[in-house]
Design a protein around this nucleic acid. Structure first.
Lengths: 188, 188
DNA sequence: GAGAACATGTAAGCGGTTACATGATTAT
DNA sequence: ATAATCATGTAACCGCTTACATGTTCTC
């Protein structure tokens, strides 16, 4: 059972929203679902070519002055079928790898300061991320009054990010306390 | 800046706890830090060989009857230095990829039942995981009374898992409500 | 008798990142 | 001037998974 390529579906899914160029796809993925997904050009362009070969997308070339030609891809009916098929298949869960925790696990021989520093960096990061997510959320909630279901699904994914980050922040506080306890040599 | 190999440090880190064979390392990683890390034999054995070549580990062969020889690896002083160096370097954060959310994001055209099913599966999974983590936690807390710092660091990593899973479960509840709302065609 | 645990490894191949290549236009 | 945005692609390489290869002992 060869490992299936999820990037294909990320690209195909983006085309299901509206016709787009490879460049647009990169941007939309980054800005739209950057909390939980990413793709690079080196993945997107070959996939696009492949999707056309398989009949899941078609390509129209738009001439532009000065800039390179824009290749705008549209999803086909077969492409939508393929996407829907993937959507209904079970979700596969890959093992997480969290480097921060790996370091923490091996840090008992080093100074607690090393761990404290890493956790504090992580905490700052999470604080920034949370703020950004909340801003996005606010804008989405006010934009949602009139619009359709798409935004509601988008909001669900964002809420996952918010809950995760809040959990991470709670953990940072607890862990920093514990590390400071170890530092000052106390039992607890 | 080539992407650095974290598996090496996972293996080296395991050897820092005690001398072990490749087989032991696999087991220890799975049972000990399986919540946030994993390695396969196809990674471990070549890395072990490489670590010996680099002088970060040494190997002793134990003859066994019936079973294949056990190759027990021990970390060297140079190996400990290398591990400590890595520990103090900044943590690198790789972009997450969460397939469940990718599907959810593209699911607005499909039936809400598809999404409900995926989220329910995820919820069950998280419930099982939480129960297991709590069991492990309980055992660790009672074992910790007398032991040193190692367990305290281990507990911190486990707590991260617990908070994450609790957040996921909160999200599942909220999201299932939302999806059921969409299903029954209501505005909210 | 089946399967898990013990034990070590190799080969093939994919998925993904990083760096390279090119070049105009617009904004600061 | 400098950087960012627009725009498309290729090449090299590495990390990792999956499958293969082999064989014994212990447990259900």
């Amino acid at each position: 059972m060869p490992r299936e390529n999820k990037s294909r579906y990320a690209v195909l899914g983006m085309l299901s929203l509206e016709p787009m160029s490879g460049y647009d796809i990169k941007k939309k993925i980054h800005r739209g679902i950057g909390e939980f997904w990413s793709e690079s050009f080196a993945q997107i362009y070959p996939i696009l070519k492949q999707l056309v070969e398989e009949g899941y997308a078609v390509c129209q070339i738009e001439d532009q002055e000065g800039k390179p030609d824009r290749k705008v891809y549209s999803i086909t009916e077969a492409g939508r079928d393929e996407l829907m098929k993937w959507l209904s298949e079970p979700v596969t869960y890959y093992p997480l790898r969290i480097e921060l925790l790996l370091k923490l696990f091996f840090a008992h021989n080093a100074s607690p300061d090393v761990s404290i520093h890493h956790v504090e960096q992580f905490q700052k990061r999470m604080q920034d991320v949370l703020e950004e997510y909340k801003n996005v959320e606010e804008r989405m909630v006010s934009a949602m009054k009139s619009r359709g279901n798409w935004l509601r699904y988008r909001l669900m994914t964002l809420r996952y990010g918010i809950y995760s980050v809040e959990a991470a922040l709670k953990w940072c506080e607890e862990t920093l306390q514990e590390l400071n306890g170890i530092k000052s040599g106390k039992g607890v």
